[in-house]
Design a protein around this nucleic acid. Sequence first.
RNA 1: UGUCUCGUGGUGUAAUGGUAGCACAGAUGGUUUUGGUCCAUCUAGUCCGGGUUCGAAUCCUGGCGAGACAACCA
Length: 575
Amino acid sequence: MSKEHIETPTDETLKSNFIHQEIDKDLQENKNQGKVLTRFPPEPNGYLHIGHAKSICLNFGLGKHYNGATNLRFDDTNPVKEDVEYVDSIKEDVKWLGFEWQGEPRFTSDYFDQLYAWAVKLIKKGKAYVDDQSAEQIASQKGTPTEPGKESPFRNRSVEENLDLFERMKNGEFEEGEKVLRAKIDLASPNMHMRDPLMYRILKRHHHRTGDKWCIYPMYDFAHGQGDFVEGITHSICTLEFEVHRPLYNWFLDQILEGEPAPEARPRQIEFARLNLNYTVMSKRKLLQLVNENYVSGWDDPRMPTISGLRRRGYTPASVRRFADEIGVAKRENVIDVSLLEHCVREDLNKRAPRVYAVMNPVKVIITNYPEGQVEWMEAINNPEDESMGTRTLPFSREIYIEREDFMENAPKKFFRMDVGREVRLKNAYIVKCEGIEKDESGEITEIHCTYDPNTKSGMEGSNRKVKGTLHWVSIEHSKTVQVKQYDRLFMDEAPDGHKDKEFLEFLNPDSLSVIDNCYIEPNYKDAGANFEDGIERYQFQRLGYFCIDKDSTEKQVIFNRTVALRDSWSKKKK
RNA sequence: UGUCUCGUGGUGUAAUGGUAGCACAGAUGGUUUUGGUCCAUCUAGUCCGGGUUCGAAUCCUGGCGAGACAACCA
């Protein structure tokens, strides 16, 4: 089957995966009245990255596929690290990717009262207790995966005392670290998470939503599963590391639901392997470090694997969704080659980006037999992949720029470009012949002299002649000067954070950004009809790659970011 | 020396007891006014051993290997 169009979100055909099969089974058993409700539950403590995009596409894709819905919930149980800045960026990124969450975004902090009540219920059942020990003491009693833990001396306090203490924790009578609430489960469990995990800790911090109402905050483990339950989530899709938490979530729900009527839906957690991409890092901590220590310009630096970085780099939402679909979903550890991501954006942009002429590394060409002062407006197709995008005109004159790399003295036969005595075609203009060159003292070419054949204007009969090379060009007099930022991979190592003895920063690529201040572009590139749903202008610079206009552009200074170069089988061959 | 999870071309991912397929990457050729696109062809795989079966990537068993888990993080 040929790929005529890259799928739009509505007709996206999801690749099947094991999660579909599990949900299909649940549906066959008529669990949850046949409903499917998923959720995307980020913590607002950083910007979303391509790994989150996988999760977003999975969760929202599932909701759509099963005619259900997907909630956006912020798991904001740790005011120390969280911020509204992140809430806003996450909403923007999910929307940009093309997904809609059900109703308003949810916040785990909306459930703090309920969680508190449930904690009290557990205390009353003798399933939770206040522990006065320090973090270190508790840790030292946890045991190891192979040795059982030891009981806290406070484990068997009376219900009354626990109730009193917990309320006083809530009232702010104790300082941070003085007391915690713990679940009373099993210190000998082979699952470390069942060894009397913490439920609440004292944090006298301002919360971005609840303000100063609380000075105790639930731990993620005591909040996440209940958040899903409260919302009626049927399938809680998460990454592999939470597999060992699943029994704990189920235990909490069992405790909470005891004595209650059977709920309409009870979340079922299914885990999948997170995305890893080579030549980058994906941990929030490391991304934050890159930002804070100014190795990049910000979360949306086009070299970052963040969604905002990809957006600024020029990736389209469709290309990211396609990528998420291509990589699939499974439980085994995986490392995806960035070339697949690049393939996805090329595939989309090839279909949709208008072609324009720009010269990044110019050398001057004088067409000696072309009349001085004459200008011809040449017609050019905006996108050979999409006739409906029409044509525009661009000016041709006696003095033009071509790429320095498109000329070579004494070039080998396989070099299909310009050399003295050779003919090449100037795309959408004339066939020209190189007659000679001029150099400066250092030997660098300063001018190339050509003659043109007036009978070979594109469209004329005479232009049908076979010529080995076709070059792009711009008229010097008419061209506009813009800045171009070229990006290369941020790290030189395939797995920058995969070395025990070396820090990932050691592998930073010093050439990951190169700025070209004088890039020459045809004057009417805006007429080429760049039209993208997110309003970002994207173009193909003929023969060079895909570029988009950076948000920092001004009228005086237009900045283009290179999204990705065109595939280049010539440069590969040279090696 | 625990519990859980996972091993299919270089990288991902299908095949759910019945011809190991697809994508990316790589190679070759064709078309081309982008060395792009497109088209065609090729390279390359079931971790190992035993068992069940007419038949095993799939089921059983024993190894081996990888990952996760011992934060008042999520």
